[in-house]
Simulated assay, not measured.
Amino acid sequence: MSHAAKAGALGAVSVCAVILSSTAAYAIGDDNVEPPSSGRPSGDASGATLTAAATATGIKVRQVSGGSSGSSHEPLAPVDPNWEPPACWYEPVATSQQLKAAVDRLKKNPNTNLVHVTPTLSWGEELMVDHYEKGTAKTGSGAGYENYNLDKDGRFWRGVINKNREDDPESAVCERTLFWQNSGNLPDDEHAPTPDVLAGYAYDKINVPTTEVEVNPVTKSTVNLPTWVWLDKGTFKEVRVRAELADAGVWAETTAKPVALHLEPGTDDAETRPASGDCKINDDGSIGTPYSKGDSDKTPPCGITYQRASSGRPYELKASITWQISWEGSGGTRGDLPNGTFETTRDMTVQEIQSINR
């Protein structure tokens, strides 16, 4: 990961670290107001650990184009089975003043623990005072910070776990304790929230239309006569999702563009058109050609010819739409990610008749 990709201005920090007590969870920097439920710790605490809170993130995600992500939309499956979204990354969490205020509350209530020191470790008063106020270095935590770096311009950062990968061992690698980062650029760390990291995070949030292909004949296909398959233009469009970590001045927009339709007839006794089964997208955004009256003797650009009747049990036609994935982000960055696919199925009844009136 290049240093150029890591460059980015830091803005105002959102408050994600919290103080956990027996009565309430308080956001750093606010002595009276509880944080929203989405950022509140949850799950079981054991000793000094609290793992569930580590998934709270300041990254905001929204679908910029391509429709909503409602019930008629579903997530993509990457073509590359080895590709996964980022497991964890670092985010700014508190100013010097906010961290000092949190530790001051610890002093008033020694039974309170500070979560988000790492994704899986909470520190109590003694360790927090020693490391961030007195500047005492702690094993595995690097040099300490005198008086919370109150005379410096920057933020304290923490590790965040991707909620969709919190059971993955890779999610535990962002285990640095709260560390200081001067304002102006991202940490020099392979798990910094660079635009490519946010692009991968956005990919995991893409939902595409659950579009079914059009076929003719609609009810029953016929042995040795072509079944036309197509998707009208406008049936699906590019889907663009934006992920932004405003606190770090970093953003990325990941775009999924439909580029092809792949057909699997559901039986070896069939021929696809083209022979590969890959129907390319047309210049107008459609795939294939709609059937018109009088086309029964023509060969469809996208379709299937079944050579054996379905014998009472329909064949399962699988139609997989390939989506090409690219991204662009802050600092003029851009790149590609593995293609995604979305598969739909359709029952195809094939009758043993050699000619039909279409």
Rank of each mutant, 00 (worst) to 15 (best):
K237P: 00
K237C: 03
V239S: 00
R240F: 00
R240A: 15
R240Y: 00
V241F: 00
V241C: 01
R242N: 13
A243H: 05
A243K: 06
A243I: 07
A243R: 00
E244Q: 03
L245W: 05
L245M: 10
L245R: 09
A246L: 08
A246D: 15
A246S: 15
D247C: 07
D247T: 13
D247W: 01
D247P: 13
A248G: 12
G249C: 11
V250H: 00
A252C: 05
A252S: 08
A252V: 05
A252Y: 00
A252M: 02
E253I: 05
E253D: 12
E253S: 05
E253T: 09
E253K: 01
T254M: 04
T254P: 06
T254A: 09
T255V: 12
T255Q: 02
T255A: 02
A256Q: 01
K257A: 14
P258C: 08
P258Y: 06
P258F: 02
V259Q: 10
V259W: 00
V259T: 15
L261A: 09
L261P: 13
H262D: 11
H262R: 14
L263C: 06
L263V: 04
E264I: 12
E264Q: 13
P265R: 02
P265M: 06
P265C: 08
P265L: 10
G266Q: 03
G266H: 11
G266N: 09
T267F: 14
T267H: 06
T267Y: 11
T267W: 13
D268W: 00
D269G: 02
D269Q: 11
D269V: 07
D269E: 14
D269H: 03
A270I: 14
A270G: 05
A270E: 03
T272V: 10
T272P: 01
R273E: 08
P274I: 10
P274L: 13
A275S: 15
S276H: 07
S276R: 11
S276Q: 04
S276Y: 05
G277N: 08
G277T: 11
D278E: 15
D278G: 07
D278C: 14
C279H: 03
C279D: 10
C279T: 06
K280I: 10
I281R: 15
D283M: 09
D283F: 05
D283Y: 05
D284G: 10
D284Q: 14
G285L: 08
G285N: 05
G285W: 00
S286A: 12
I287R: 01
I287F: 15
G288K: 10
T289Q: 11
P290K: 11
P290D: 11
P290F: 00
P290Q: 09
Y291V: 02
Y291T: 01
S292E: 12
S292G: 05
S292M: 08
S292L: 10
K293V: 05
G294H: 06
D295V: 04
D295M: 09
S296M: 03
